[in-house]
Design a protein around this nucleic acid. Structure first.
Lengths: 175, 175
DNA sequence: GACTGTAGGTTCGTTCATTGAACCTATCGG
DNA sequence: CCGATAGGTTCAATGAACGAACCTACAGTC
């Protein structure tokens, strides 16, 4: 990988992790996968990422066992990319990053994460204050926060305005 | 910043965070700062980072309020870089990354984090299982794990073999 | 007072990655 | 047959990272 040459000598699991997910765009691709984005074109319009870079990242993440490439229709052949268990294990990292970004940088509540079972807003570690447990990723509900723009340009962002659970596929109609 | 042009349009606190700490080397510099590295030369030998890149990252992190540049001796003028509160708030992110890297990639226990007050090894969110609380960063003790090389080449790595608390300065003698 | 060493940089040419536009392939609907 | 759609690849131009060399200011030592 791109970062490997130097990071590899560092005896450190953080460095190893960054070798795999530390490249530009990579974590945003994974974030979108949590939000339910699965198709090449949906990643493309939602992220505004160059096509070549997206193809390269999807391939690398698949090779690392973070995403799985899955044929969802035979003809014409179409593939989708979904998170593996290894990918889903990144949720605490993404959550921590998001909390830091909100508290230290944006100070805006763009999205709210709730426990789907009871509707309680989750704490910084994705724990449910009401139930007292860490909520499993498929039981996390994501809803737009008060500071999120309600009229986004691209269809994927529009589809993401509907409350849904993490990992559940978005339905981005042409609209 | 380098990443800003594209990430800025993303209404997302994760994207905002990555704008600030998502560049190559940046998170490793911050990790070292948690481990007690404070001086330009110590970062240099410990990370193996090009000098120009280090200077640029230190400057950017200082400008973002994540590190603070502090004169620790007047003549000759010498500065050190220490984490601000905003920087310290990144600990959960770094911890989550490290846990993921260890569990999913390296499968090796390179460093152990303990509650300095009671010696209990910390859980994935830096919480103390014995005390039932999230441990404040200055109360986290870092000790070498069983899989860490005991005879590293550079003096900073050697100094880091001694158990110490996070944020406490390393003493890297020439040795 | 001339050397040597150290901390903290800057400069510069080369290499590598990212970008954005254009192009390619296969298939479906009409 | 024509156009649209999904999922790519190719290519030239740009920007960032790399590593070596250089610079500055001071301290200690002979």
């Amino acid at each position: 990988m791109a970062l490997g040459k130097d990071y590899a000598t560092q005896e450190c699991s953080i460095a190893s992790a960054l070798e795999v997910i530390g490249e530009r765009w990579t974590l945003l691709v994974i974030r979108d996968a949590f939000y339910g984005v699965r198709r090449y074109n949906d990643f493309l319009v939602h992220l505004g990422i160059p096509r070549a870079v997206l193809a390269s990242r999807l391939q690398a993440l698949t090779a690392q066992g973070i995403l799985e490439k899955r044929r969802y229709q035979q003809s014409p052949p179409r593939d989708e990319y979904v998170l593996t268990d290894r990918g889903i294990a990144l949720w605490p990292t993404l959550r921590a990053l998001g909390v830091w970004g909100r508290e230290q940088l944006t100070h805006r509540k763009l999205r709210i994460f709730r426990h789907a079972d009871c509707g309680t807003e989750l704490g910084p570690f994705s724990e449910c204050p009401a139930c007292g447990t860490v909520v499993a990723v498929p039981d996390v509900e994501i809803v737009p926060g008060p500071d999120l723009n309600r009229d986004p340009a691209d269809p994927v962002s529009r589809a993401l305005l509907k409350p849904k659970r993490l990992l559940q596929p978005v339905e981005a109609d042409a609209a």
